[in-house]
């Protein structure tokens, strides 16, 4: 545990460049997606135990907190996929290392282009569900 704490502390205190911060975000997004998968599998499995619990969980997924979580999940998935592709390309072609800053900028642009419309559409859907004419029905 102390190794984990000291690593997290070091990761946050070291003033690395873009590669460092993207690595940190890659880890956080990876853990976030893993958390979703665990919740998802547990939620689906609950139907085998009790339909009531399953229905209650489905109701919980419709709360604002989980809607915000869905937005974070969409961003995390897109970021993790795009940044993972950047890392894989640089791993397979080490001679491209001098282009790594360009690769970083490109990855950020692609993430924004993919994540912005996705999140906006999802957020509008959630706002409509919570505050629109059909809210509460």
């Amino acid at each position: 545990m102390s190794a984990l704490i000291s690593t997290v502390r070091a990761s946050l205190s070291y003033r690395g460049r873009e590669g460092h911060w993207l690595w940190l975000l890659h880890r956080v997004s990876g853990l976030g997606v893993l958390l979703f998968l665990i919740l998802h599998v547990a939620g689906m499995s609950s139907a085998f135990i009790s339909i009531e619990i399953h229905d209650r969980l489905l109701e919980m997924y419709k709360t604002p907190l989980f809607s915000i979580g869905e937005l974070a999940l969409a961003f995390g998935l897109i970021f993790h996929a795009v940044n993972g592709t950047r890392i894989a390309i640089l791993e397979l072609k080490p001679e491209l290392w001098q282009k790594q800053q360009l690769a970083t900028r490109l990855a950020i642009i692609i993430v924004v282009l993919l994540a912005a419309p996705t999140i906006i559409i999802m957020a509008l859907g959630s706002i409509n569900a919570f505050f629109g004419p059909a809210a509460g029905h």
């Binding site: 460049r17 590669g19 790594q100």
Partner: peptide, 9 residues
Amino acid sequence: CRTVFNCTE
């Protein structure tokens, strides 16, 4: 190695 590039920098 996670290809972070801190070492190169």
